[in-house]
């Protein structure tokens, strides 16, 4: 580490990665009111992880966000989504009918808000986890490319 010629990249990356993550969550929770939503937020979170691995190396990123965590996150996301559907069935509604969550009369919106946020949380986890898993799988493979191919 005598001559670290990537120092600008590292410093800028260090500044930007937290901002990107916060922005991802902002997009997620602001998706009801403005443009954005869980799909975009999940990809933004995955992109923050990719930026980390590009600037600090894949080994460091895998220590910070283990691949097992990423794929577990994806599975948990799908489970949250499906579980929300069954929760509404248990509450006496149809599958994914959020109105039944708090047994509200028509026009009540608490169940809708809660249901949408939780379901989108599932989408966020699934997309972020799946995209991170894909990136790890592609980037983690050792390239056996010849020098003359460059």
């Amino acid at each position: 580490m005598k001559s670290d010629h990537h120092v600008i990249l590292r410093v800028i990356g260090k500044c930007f990665i937290p901002l990107i993550v916060i922005y991802g969550f902002y997009v997620h929770f602001h998706g009801e009111v403005g443009a954005g939503g869980a799909f975009q937020a999940g990809v933004v979170l995955a992109v923050a992880i990719i930026l980390h691995s590009l600037t600090f190396g894949l080994a460091n990123t895998m220590r910070a966000v283990p691949p097992a965590f990423a794929r577990t996150l994806a599975a948990i996301g799908v489970l949250i989504f499906v579980g929300m559907g069954f929760l509404t069935v248990v509450q006496g509604g149809l599958f994914l009918e959020y109105q039944a969550l708090f047994a509200e009369p028509p026009g009540g919106h608490d169940g809708q808000h809660a249901g949408i946020i939780i379901v989108e949380l599932g989408v966020l986890f699934a997309v972020a986890g799946a995209m991170t898993t894909i990136f790890y799988a592609l980037a983690g493979r050792v390239a056996e490319i010849r020098d003359e191919d460059w």
Binding site: L58, A59, P67, R71, A74, A130, I134, Y136, A137, G140
Partner: peptide, 19 residues
């Protein structure tokens, strides 16, 4: 999306080996 991520990981390995 979840299944596609899983399929990619199964085709290429989960990445731990290279780590």
């Amino acid at each position: 999306v979840f299944v596609a991520g899983l399929a990619v990981a199964m085709l290429l390995g989960f990445g731990e080996r290279s780590l």
